[in-house]
Amino acid sequence: MFQGLDVGLSTIYFLLFGAATAACALGVLCSRHPLNATICLIGTMLAISGIYALLASPFLGVVQVLVYAGAIMMLVVFVIMVLNRARDHEVPRIENWSYAVLLVPLLLFITFVHTLTALPAETLKSDPGSLRGDIAPIAKSMFDVNQGHGYWLLFECIGVLLLVAVVGAVLLAKRSLDTPVEMLTVGEEAHDSH
């Protein structure tokens, strides 16, 4: 989709998406209410999916929008609204001594930058032979057992993990395990008295 872009245009797009990503991430750090932070986080996800498309992995960008910006963030917004006691004036935003803790991510970022810029240039060189991540080559690389090991076993494990996570979340978030039985007996009593 972005294959036809020339060098200057795609650099401009990368700068735009990168600035949007960084600004929205800073918005998560500085916002007062969790719902504002959620909107900022959705903006981060969308900008990162744009960068995926620029990096010739359109399938990953689509999955990012579908799963992250769609499903996961919808779940977060839903839980914040259900609990409805997410107001941050009850919980202090940043305590004074926490500003000292900000040194840790700052030092980590400086270390990252120092390490990345110290790498030899050919390690971080864009390879012209890298494949474009469309659906067909990704599916072939994941599931074709004839050409290599494939990832089908990992794929099945992820499916089982998601199933277990959903069952565990339902069991954790239910008010108590025998709630439906109580409701059932109440209903039966009401039915009998009627």
């Binding site: 990503t21 960084a22 991430a25 800073l26 998560v28 750090l29 969790p34 932070a37 959620t38 981060t44 977060v76 839980v79 914040i80 997410a86 941050d88 919980v91 202090p92 935003r93 940043i94 305590e95 926490s98 500003y99 803790v101 900000l102 840790v104 991510p105 700052l106 980590l108 970022f109 990252f112």
Partner: peptide
């Protein structure tokens, strides 16, 4: 940069969300 900002959010904010 994004990883560092995420780490800063985890370390400094007190709201669990």
């Amino acid at each position: 940069l994004i990883f560092s900002i995420g780490l800063a959010v985890v370390l400094t904010r007190r709201n669990i969300f």
